[in-house]
Design a binder for these strands. Sequence first.
DNA 1: GAAATAGTGTCTTTTAGACAGTATCGG
DNA 2: CCGATACTGTCTAAAAGACACTATTTC
Lengths: 261, 261
Amino acid sequence: MNHQSATANVSGRHFLQERMMLSEQEYLAQYDASRYASPIVTVDSVLFSLWQEQLCVLLVKRANHPQKGWWGLPGGFVDMQQDATTRDTALRKLREKTSVDPAWLEQLATFSGADRDPRGWSLTTAWYALIAAETCKAVSDDVSDACWQPIEGMAQRTDIAFDHQHIITEALIRLRQKTLYSLLPVHCLPAEFTLTQLQQVTELILARPVQRKSLIRRFEASAMFEETGESVATGARRAKLYRLKPGSDMHNFSRNLMVED
Amino acid sequence: MNHQSATANVSGRHFLQERMMLSEQEYLAQYDASRYASPIVTVDSVLFSLWQEQLCVLLVKRANHPQKGWWGLPGGFVDMQQDATTRDTALRKLREKTSVDPAWLEQLATFSGADRDPRGWSLTTAWYALIAAETCKAVSDDVSDACWQPIEGMAQRTDIAFDHQHIITEALIRLRQKTLYSLLPVHCLPAEFTLTQLQQVTELILARPVQRKSLIRRFEASAMFEETGESVATGARRAKLYRLKPGSDMHNFSRNLMVED
DNA sequence: GAAATAGTGTCTTTTAGACAGTATCGG
DNA sequence: CCGATACTGTCTAAAAGACACTATTTC
């Protein structure tokens, strides 16, 4: 085997490599994602708030097909130009409806399947969020396509699009679970709030009374809040106002409030 | 206005409806999902088990681009023909590697973004699973592309594809959290197991000792298990064997084992 | 001062932590 | 009988439940 044939051999191998063993860069240069069939990808959010003394979610009357005219969760397609992640998609869609960012936004789960959307095999990454209803004027004031609808009776409704009823149920389960071991419900309240308000949201979320004393003990132990110095008169003795300490994370307790039924 | 013109009017309106106000059926008939650009959709699983006295995850040497030769999670594209949901995709991909279904499989979260896969804007629904390593022969016996790799040191590795290191970290956080308030670790054990084995998995997952007495109290309180009647000799006094009671769900305790650091 | 709402004190209950004590086995 | 592993008893500790009590405000 002379030098010439060895070189030929090497370049022959190199040629093979180009055909059968592409480099990473070559592979990526020729890759075209649009050649492959792929599910319909959307993002939906379950936005909770307190509205008219009730725990509500924000629903939107669907302006377009499919399921035009039905009530659905605020959401839509990922915009690969605008959105860095599906979290951005969720925030963008919520901002369109409320004109502000929610105080809390966390991923719930991804729901998928061939039957959940009549357009075909689809997948939605669902988020759940909390906001103080009074901070988003757009929703509460306008005669709009988006409005707060009570959680109570939600499971019996027949005018909810896709599997959004199921997603709302799962979001409520998650919100209730978190309420048992954190003070998450504060994010349904305005920036300054009283302990009584916190107790009320907590009771509305859990749909049962909670011991005020237990709540106060947790409130103090969390070290998440500070007095504003102000107080409000809600009938009799004035109630102290509290706010979130800047930069404090949600505290998780190591045991649940009340044992589940 | 005679009968003739009224009819013309109606069919004129109907024509308008076809152009501007499609019915749901008409809309669906003309809908073509493939016209819209959409993210790359995959499913990945973090399969945990006990192997050689260590908590391990199943990693697969990537046979194809991108990131060929790197270690990644078992997973892949959704097959819209075969898979009813992404759960089926996860199970199918795990079965290919282990030839059995995991004892536990639960959705972790969905990770998305423009940068996590070099092919473009992508989204993966990640699951985490538990299995007894001894039940899946294919993995442990063969010189295969899939093998158990210890969790310890995983965060320092530089040979893990995509954001799979991050996904593994999140899965471990979730597994540890669940271990604090349930007996989930039993699903890393064979169908019949001793309390000492359960204690060992629990300690490996949490990376710290647990009070055997606390574990036994929970074991009994859960009512999830029954004695097999058999026992095994592991050196000295024989240890009783237990199995999951058929049809029993995972019990969640209302407080955590040990307070987090 | 009565009524109402806000907030505190304190005893009980539940369940984990700690660890000493007993049981069963092989040698 | 010794050592080792499996299992139990029981006291302590932490935090929630229950509820009576005090404080502040309006009328």
